[in-house]
Design a protein around this nucleic acid. Structure first.
Lengths: 326, 326
DNA sequence: TCTAAATGTGTAATCGGTTACAGGTGATCG
DNA sequence: CGATCACCTGTAACCGATTACACATTTAGA
């Protein structure tokens, strides 16, 4: 791997001239520029980003902190992040933090040691080093977080509940996510804000995680506990899918006997039968916007709104009954 | 952020002594070590990895090249990689290359510029810089690749076909993946090696990608083209799921009227009804082993086998009919 | 034509670490 | 008692880039 010195020697100029040519700043004569460019091509030279980063005290890298990458919501989020970051010339250092673990701060330190330009985080406990590096929170957002991109979960909850209420709800079971996850609480608030003014009968089941294992257990559990159920509002698609499966296994028809609505619109929800009606979270958009916001912050551009709230949408497929005419 | 100089000054020693203390090499007196450690704690010092990397000409980072992160097979793979890498003290720089794009080489250059210690790649065209950085291929492996971790796809194909042949196959449709993907070809070879010696009637449908969109289109297409189908062997779970859905939508019962077997065992295949019988690829293991192999290569440990082949397994759920007794 | 500004270039300091080397101590051994 | 060696420490070179600064040359303006 060639260095700037070798390029300078081959071109017959000093390293300063090579550097100026590379970065297009300062004065460089036509003649010198051509010689340098020829030498660069000849040696297949590309500058060492590490050396640059050392001097600049920053880099072209963004740290990304996710809770449990294997959650199917994240791939799309990551894709959005990666795409936006790449367009701005940044790359991603990945950090995976298991739900509830304390590794978040370790990763923040690591990011700081790597001179990352900024951090995107969907993990709660990441306070350390905040002064040193700009951070944009995503998806799981607290009030204290300055910069954030997230979805309007209250509205999502409302959308889900409204869809159920409009369609002969009967007895409703609400599967609420972990109350440690801010978004999950908001969804529940939204759901209840619709159900409470009506006289729809409902039960709330709280879960500990968003894992598939727990989804399966919970699905069996609610049928055991509540017997006949007419509608289920799930806190994410995994739980909705698990409920649908268990219902069908027990011989119930979806949506005739039991209707189910999910949350997230993960790609699979359209691959099951019947297609899962769900609330679509703009995962790709959240990622894309978050990376964009972070880069603008890194570049010190002035930013109109530091907190970007995206709207979820109802995606109607086949797991709900027909709407009742009023 | 404190530097080694500040630590040295506070501890009343030279930077060399601080460095020796940090890296536990060379001689450091008990007394000096204590003073240095106190200063480190006092200043909350942690060494700058960028400066280290510049001198060492390597780093604690591994480049990861994936084709289309949003493919549901990858999260588990990534999780395995991340976990193994972290255990060895390495972190991951992510590169996402769209199917068919030429960005692979750009990323390889970027990785080289970042002084990565090595590269894990599931992308075909990544020849450049191979001399400079150790590369371990994963999942999509060519004969030319030196170091690789992958699954025995021929065996997987055999397993899948055998499961179908054992269960009253009738008319079989094989959905084969893109023939540009090495693993897809092997699966087909495996499948045919079982079917050809029998007199089972089959059709082969080749697909262009592993995308959900194409899965849905293909599912509709095969019913239109072949009418009554008794068994489907799909090249991955996405396609299998799409076929199951389309079959159910058309009023066929799975597995009574049509049986379906998938490939990958993505987490969702257990969340559909009926549960999808499939060939389990040890995605987590592939990732974990690949990162482990790469690190061993980086550390110049001697390695018994450069190519690790993992065995797929048949996971029986409910999308196949009962076995026929011979 | 004289001066100031614009242009072009190289030298060397700098970023924050690591490590070769030189130099100093005290202990051990012949 | 001098040599050898283990132990300990600091100075300075080095990794590969950027850039402040000094200096030279050309151009422009009056």
């Amino acid at each position: 791997m060639a260095t700037i010195k070798e390029v300078a020697k081959l071109a017959g100029v000093s390293v300063a001239t090579v550097s100026r040519t590379l970065n297009k700043n300062g004065y460089v004569s036509e003649n010198a520029r051509e010689k340098v460019e020829a030498a660069i091509k000849e040696l297949e030279y590309y500058p060492n980003e590490v050396a640059r980063s050392l001097f600049q005290k920053t880099s072209k890298m963004i740290g990304l902190l996710l809770p449990d990458i294997s959650n199917p919501y994240f791939p799309l989020l990551m894709k959005g992040i990666e795409e936006s970051a790449r367009e701005h010339g940044y790359s991603i250092i990945l950090g995976n933090v298991e739900e509830g673990s304390e590794a978040g701060n370790d990763y923040m330190t690591l990011f700081a040691q790597q001179n990352v330009a900024g951090v995107l985080s969907a993990v709660e406990n990441t306070l350390s080093h905040q002064q040193a590096m700009p951070v944009v929170m995503l998806d799981r957002v607290m009030e204290v977080d300055d910069y954030a991109v997230y979805t309007n979960d209250v509205k999502g909850g409302i959308l889900a509940a409204q869809a159920i209420v409009d369609r002969d709800p009967g007895k409703v079971v609400i599967i609420a996510g972990p109350k440690t996850v801010p978004g999950a609480i908001d969804r529940l608030i939204g759901v209840l804000s619709v159900l409470n003014p009506t006289n729809v009968e409902y039960e709330i089941v709280e879960t500990q995680s968003f894992s598939i294992k727990e989804a399966e257990v919970t699905a069996k559990e609610i049928f055991r506990r509540y017997g006949k159920i007419d509608s289920v509002i799930a806190s994410n698609d995994l739980f909705a899918l698990a409920v649908m499966k268990e219902a069908q296994r027990r011989g119930s028809r979806v949506p005739e006997d039991i209707q189910v609505i999910g949350y997230d619109n993960i790609p699979f929800s359209q691959l099951v039968y019947p297609g899962l009606t769900t609330i679509s979270q703009p995962a790709f958009q959240v990622g894309y916007q978050a990376a964009d916001l972070l880069v603008r912050r890194i570049k010190q551009k002035d930013i109109q709104n530091k907190r970007i709230k995206l709207d979820p949408e109802l995606v109607v497929r086949d797991s709900l009954r027909e709407r009742e005419e009023k």
